[in-house]
């Protein structure tokens, strides 16, 4: 009868071994040397961060890695009060800022956490710089956040 359906919870975990791929592998290798790499289109000269294997504007395969600046301008941001973990929206211990940053030499914006001694001082248009982990390992966590430059 409607109203009497029984639900089964299915405790199967799907495991995937997704590859980061050719372009992002080089990006992460750059992290080992605390470098931020972009990929440059030889035709339109756009520089994309993170790198990818195709120019979205010219549709040409691209593979020329270039280093972009460690500083940039904060273009947009949101103050996050939550983290989404395994599909659940959990309160964050502290509000934190997710920004979109135009790095010097890059054509696209890169997303990152932005930290400042006082969160209220963070404004769009401000200059920010990359802060790295002391020992970088070629992991996304190496580039921990950006702070006011």
């Amino acid at each position: 009868m409607p109203g009497d359906i029984v639900r089964a919870s299915v405790p199967i975990t799907f495991t995937y071994k997704n590859r980061v791929g050719h372009a992002l592998e080089q990006y992460l290798n750059g992290f080992k040397e605390k470098k931020i790499l972009g990929v440059k289109c030889p035709a339109c000269k756009r520089v994309y961060v993170p790198p990818r294997t195709v120019c979205s504007s010219c549709h040409k395969p691209i593979d020329t890695m270039v280093e972009v600046g460690q500083t940039g301008v904060l273009k947009h941001f949101t103050i996050a009060h939550v983290n989404i973990v395994n599909g659940e929206i959990l309160d964050a211990q502290q509000p934190y800022i997710i920004g979109l940053i135009k790095l010097t030499g890059a054509s696209s914006l890169v997303s990152a956490i932005v930290k400042a001694p006082s969160q209220g001082t963070i404004k769009t248009g401000m200059k920010v710089k990359a802060v790295w982990k002391e020992t970088a390992q070629g992991d996304y966590g190496d580039l921990t956040y950006f702070e006011p430059a």
């Binding site: 997704n18 590859r19 980061v20 791929g21 050719h22 372009a23 992002l24 592998e25 990818r52 294997t53 195709v54 395969p61």
Partner: peptide
Amino acid sequence: KRPDINIPELIQ
């Protein structure tokens, strides 16, 4: 196996 590339890089 193509461990060197990701899904979009397989399509391209």
